[in-house]
Design a protein around this nucleic acid. Structure first.
Lengths: 249, 249
DNA sequence: CGGATCGTTGAGTTGTATCAAGACGGGTGG
DNA sequence: CCACCCGTCTTGATACAACTCAACGATCCG
């Protein structure tokens, strides 16, 4: 929780300029956004369904998830977010939250007033486009997850989620050479891929037995990226990362 | 296929002004967009995964779907679109298509060049916001479907899809008092809710037996909206329709 | 009338859920 | 510093939702 404001702006600028090259003036406009850094503990709600937030947020440190509950109390996690993401941008134009968002690890969250973002978008159409694009990538990930939940078996879905984490964390420099830290419980993995926790446990064991992953605590190693990718039916196209970025490893 | 250009503009204007009230100048800017109306037959692809389209489209007549295929050839339909929708707006900022889109009935489609839309968005931030919002509503629907596929049983999912169709068609005036025409095969319903066609058939029979729907050909009647809604766990919030719009019936 | 598409039905199979219980591990308080 | 506790992970046994395969009926249309 020792993150500085300038580091947060760096994250945001790096993200937004990863596709659109912004001018110095546009970058300065971003740097001068008022941003309110706030620490969160694990398993805290950041926004809840039904609320009408007046600010969005940048995830500066930690992992968060977006989830919905059915009337029977079952939870579906529809997205995870990693440092550098702005999970809540849709609240800029959709008044009422249709999901809740929560931390899954301790986090540092930078809140930015909608007013400031609207103002920025009005003055700099290219920044508006970059933010819009962020929300479109989120939507693309929803489509991919839906395809997995609807049409792939759980083994493949689990492998797919691990591929996605590795790729997204790699894009923000949070991987080691063939591995990454995944501080997410099996309960959360279950809610994300739409199976029971018992089954997540068994699928993970299968993946380990098949030599597709190795785990030590929260550390996940991928000894053979190509084989995991194949098991997962993973094609990183849907993440819409910049073209020059290596599809990792 | 006798739709006029002015009718297509009307659709677009009605949609975009349903939330944001646009000025006359903004409306005129929309009217003067070059739009190319094209007829499509059933089961034709409009855009395919991997393509880099240079135009988006307005669905003027008919129903379309957005789908993905797994490497094993299984199909997941991740969205349906109804007249008035602009299903392809995300291609404005995501260069490569990560899904394919196809007609499920005969359709009239109005193509609009990206260039013209980018120009419009640059000059009229409120129109940009309205288009952005369209894509956010799509994303919200993805989240709701994912929750259904992951955490609701098939009976409930089928009911939910019917509720959604009724509500969305009602919003564009395409319902009769307690019913609507659903020209979608059981194969397509199966690919949308992530089950087999055999199972779709059985679930529909259950819904009929329970008195939640009545069907005559492609016509679906809903004798008791409240009961269907309850079976579906349906809350129209996620559609983000304008507040004054009645939650139908 | 034949062919194609779509809907329906039955029988056997399988992936995944549920329930229940035990093992592990890290933190807290006595 | 140990005992306890709670959350997490693991394992086994049983149950069920949904799948697959296969065949048959109903339309529609050229």
């Amino acid at each position: 929780m020792t993150l500085s404001h300038s580091a947060a702006y760096d994250l945001m600028n790096r993200k937004l300029t990863s596709i659109f090259s912004l001018s110095d003036k546009e970058k300065q406009a971003i740097q001068s956004l008022p941003i309110q850094l706030t620490p969160f503990r694990t398993d805290q709600d950041i926004v809840r369904v039904g609320e009408r937030p007046s600010r969005s947020f940048l995830l500066a440190e930690g992992f968060t998830c977006v989830y919905k509950l059915t009337s029977e109390g079952r939870r579906q996690i529809v997205a995870f977010h990693v440092p550098g993401d702005m999970p809540d941008l849709h609240s800029l134009h959709l008044k009422v939250m249709d999901t809740s968002m929560a931390t899954v690890t301790p986090c540092t969250i930078g809140f930015i007033a909608h007013e400031a973002l609207h103002d920025l978008c009005g003055r700099y159409p290219r920044i508006a486009a970059a933010l819009w694009r962020e929300t479109l990538v989120d939507a693309s990930i929803f489509r991919e997850w839906m395809t997995g939940i609807g049409r792939r078996e759980s083994y493949s879905r689990m492998a797919h989620l691990l591929c996605e984490f590795f790729t997204r964390l790699d894009a923000v420099g949070l991987t080691q050479d063939h591995g990454f830290t995944l501080p997410i419980t099996q309960v959360e993995l279950a809610d994300a891929i739409g199976v029971s926790t018992v089954h997540v446990n068994r699928v993970l064991q299968e993946l380990r037995a098949d030599g597709l992953i190795q785990t030590v605590g929260a550390q996940v190693n991928i000894p053979d990226w190509e084989r995991l990718k194949e098991a997962a039916d993973f094609d990183p196209l849907y993440l819409h990362l910049r073209q020059d970025a290596p599809a990792c490893l």
